[in-house]
Write a protein that binds this DNA or RNA. Structure first.
Length: 468
DNA sequence: TTTTGAGTTGTTCGA
DNA sequence: GTCGAACAACTCAAA
């Protein structure tokens, strides 16, 4: 009788799990394990919401396994030591895990593999990180040709494992640490069942939201996006299943708009894979701008501005709504991410790396590859970056994508009584009107901490003079 | 090797 | 109010 270990990390699901599948193919019995790595817990101590989401996901996975007569073995310690001990205890002949592009994970896995029979599989992304190369060789650094190559390959076969109970082992003598507690943000209940439910609601059926995604995704006051990012982050739904859902939504309709919408959502999934591949091939993006000629931008040292940005007190309502949504829920609408990131880098001229770090602390879906890619894109320092003169105007963005001010009023309640005409520029309210409403700019809500017109000139000059 | 076309998400200005 | 051009030049990918 052979035994294999399934080492779960950020693939907390039973469907389409390539590591679990490989373990089942190797062993008569498979032992599911998650290792709580104190080094990682320490490094993420400030990211309490995401840790709580992870712990909730572990509890959900454990419950799903128990429903199949098994359970999740949880160990606390360095992964190398804990897996070695578990191998001793079980006589397992192999360990399987899904490969992660993050440099920390790659080093950790390489170290484990030096002493233990660890085999890596794909699965976190649909395409393995080095699977897509230019015709002349080497990784793509521009999204569009990458996405064309991505789409030209056949999809791997989905492997809904739902392993039969007798194949998953749970020897009662195996010790397991308790899963830590944590307060999970209400809008995002963790777990595979919830992830699959959300995917079905978003992408399945005639009038599913995916059919309107192309436009609806831009409005911050609507629920036009899938809100699946935390689930994709921890693999509670597989990227493969999401991609299949997008492709079948596109194929199931003759409505050109609906088809295009589904294609747009698929592109978002491919962006995730693109940035995973970028981090894999260019790990230096963690420390510096991808573009060498934009590594000398004269960023401002502005602790007060940074604090105001984090607190949602910049005086620009849509930026403040975004930052407060993040703080309250651990999630932020995609367009709001662009608006708030543009404000930090372009209006406050604060280094994108500071924003990247704060987002990593705050986001349930915080992922080293996507977060870095998004910030470098906004800052204009990344692969395939926005041209540097593309500076978001926080007033215009508010008017366009939150025209009635619903998003602002929801997250910035002190602006609740401000008329829609002034909701994105409350400092322009006549004194008379302010008095009438019992609202005073600067005391009830800050005046803009920086003038956008001035800031725009400043950042254009800074980029122009520092690029070479 | 050289050439060619293209590149997520915007804003402002002037006609 | 609407519309198109300018914003800047560079790099990438493929023929």
């Amino acid at each position: 009788m052979t035994t294999a270990i399934w080492w779960a990390r950020r693939d907390l699901r039973l469907h389409d799990n390539f590591a679990l599948g490989a373990a089942l193919a190797h062993g008569d019995t498979v032992i599911p394990v998650f290792v709580l790595d104190p080094a990682l817990l320490r490094a993420n101590a400030a990211a309490g919401k995401r840790l709580a989401f992870l712990f909730g996901g572990l509890r959900a996975l454990d419950a799903d396994l128990r429903a199949r007569g098994s359970r999740l073995i949880v160990r606390t310690g360095s992964p190398g030591d804990e897996l070695a001990a578990l191998r001793e205890e079980t006589g397992a002949g192999a360990i399987y895990a899904e490969a992660d592009p993050w440099p920390y994970a790659r080093e950790r896995d390489a170290a484990v593999a030096r002493h233990l029979p660890l085999a890596m599989t794909e699965g976190i992304t649909v395409r393995p990180y080095d699977a897509i190369s230019k015709a002349a060789g080497g990784p793509y650094t521009v999204f569009t040709p990458y996405s064309r190559a991505w789409k030209s390959l056949p999809l791997p076969v989905a492997t809904d494992l739902r392993p039969p109970p007798d194949r998953l082992a749970a020897p009662p003598q195996l010790g397991s640490a308790p899963i830590p507690d944590g307060h999970v943000a209400a809008p995002f209940p963790p777990g595979e069942a919830e992830a699959l439910r959300r995917l079905a609601v978003f992408a399945e059926g005639r009038n599913a939201p995916i059919a309107a995604y192309g436009d609806a995704r831009n409005w911050v006051d609507l629920q036009g996006t899938s809100e699946l990012s935390p689930y994709l982050r921890f693999g509670m739904v597989s990227a493969l299943r999401a991609s299949v859902a997008a492709l079948s939504a596109a194929g199931d309709t003759h409505d050109a708009g609906a088809r295009q919408s589904a294609g747009t959502w698929l592109n978002e999934l491919i962006w995730r894979e693109f940035y995973a591949a970028i981090l894999y091939h260019f790990p230096n993006v963690r420390q510096e701008a991808f573009r060498a000629n934009l590594r000398n931008i004269p960023w401002q040292n502005d602790p007060a501005g940074f604090a105001a940005w984090k607190a949602g007190l910049t005086g620009y309502p849509v930026v403040d709504a975004a930052m407060r949504q993040l703080k309250a829920t651990g999630w932020m609408h995609n367009r709001a991410r662009m608006i708030s990131a543009s404000f930090l880098t372009k209006d406050l001229l604060i280094n994108w790396q500071e924003g990247e770090r704060y987002f990593m602390q705050s986001l349930l879906d915080g992922d080293p590859a996507s977060n870095n890619g998004g910030w470098q894109w906004t800052a204009g320092t990344g692969t395939d970056a926005a041209p540097y003169f593309r500076v978001f105007n926080p007033i215009l963005q508010g008017l366009k994508f939150d025209p009635k001010g619903d998003y602002v009023r929801r997250w910035v309640p002190e602006l609740g009584l401000v008329p829609t005409k002034y909701i994105h520029s409350p400092w322009e309210m006549p004194a008379e009107l302010q008095k009438q409403l019992g609202f005073q700019i600067d005391s009830d809500y800050p005046a803009p901490i920086v003038d956008h017109k001035f800031a725009r000139e400043r950042v254009l000059l800074a980029y122009r003079s520092s690029s070479s």
